[in-house]
Design a protein around this nucleic acid. Structure first.
Lengths: 158, 158
DNA sequence: CTATGTGCAAATCCTTTGCAATCCA
DNA sequence: TGGATTGCAAAGGATTTGCACATAG
């Protein structure tokens, strides 16, 4: 933890920015919730517990800063707000995918990539230089699949 | 074209909705711009050329309706607005991916799926019932890759 | 001292909603 | 006629911005 924070501090300093106390709080919240896919608002509330006078704008500005420095990256699960994950988009090997249950909203991470073949193909066929990718599966998680079996013969159409 | 419109009309009628003149205009714009990934606002302007008194709200409501009926589906390229493609999300075999150039914004479609293996794996390992997926590659298109080679030794960091 | 960071409130952008008018079966 | 559809304006929610103050090197 300490170590990661120091790395971030260095990274920021290299770009003429500082890891201020406010920003460190935000970073810590992100680090302590690596698995949570927090939104800006959620981060704001968590930070507020430690630094009650922080402003929402600062959270947004800091998140943007961290994204620019490739310290975090944002994902969009289609619910109208961005969510943030620690780890840069460009970092080699960080890739994982997301399973999004459209019934209960649960997000599960898939820690396999398996996209090399496809990437190779895209690179060749389209002359496209791939920097990052984002793969989301929409459907029903285990629990919801089970529950739905119990409700069989339900409603049709919208 | 005519045929597709009829199919849509039927689909809607089956769900107690109608293909009103307004909605047909919107549908036509979508059909005539299959490859364009239009936003609601863009659709609105195109429809306005034919039916000047259409309202933006109607466009939004119609798009939502079409999505509900799986006539179209929306995609999010991360630019803060939804975009719409003709064709339902659940339709078997419609799947294609998108290449998003983060320099010039160009969107290219990749008409290969190649995700079966991964889907199978996800289904088994996570007990997740996959209904749809969305895969986006971010990077640089051919033109931008070329242009960037000419600007070598450019600026670093943000 | 000067640049950077920050809180607050106002502004923006996309999208949704309330409501009265309109349309069509 | 009565429920569905629509336009307009207002509301909403997430994010950004302007500005004056605070802070740090």
């Amino acid at each position: 933890m300490r170590e990661i924070i120091n790395q971030v501090e260095e990274k920021l300093r290299a770009g003429d920015s500082k890891l201020t106390p406010r920003r460190e709080h935000i970073l810590r919240v992100l680090l302590e919730n690596k698995d949570k896919h927090l939104s800006a608002e959620e981060i704001y509330h968590l930070v507020k517990q430690r630094a009650p006078d922080v402003g929402l704008a600062t959270v947004y500005r800091t998140l943007e800063l961290f994204c620019d420095f490739d310290i975090i990256h944002s994902i969009d699960f289609g619910d109208g707000r961005k969510r943030y994950e620690f780890g840069g988009a460009q970092e080699k090997g960080h890739h994982h995918h997301h399973l999004i249950c459209t019934r209960c909203g649960k997000i599960t991470e898939v820690n396999e990539d398996l996209l090399e073949e496809l990437e190779l193909r895209v690179t060749k066929l389209y002359d496209f230089t791939i920097v990052d990718h984002e793969l989301k599966f929409f459907g029903y998680c285990r629990d919801c699949t089970a529950k739905m079996k119990g409700e069989e013969g339900g409603l049709a159409v919208p």
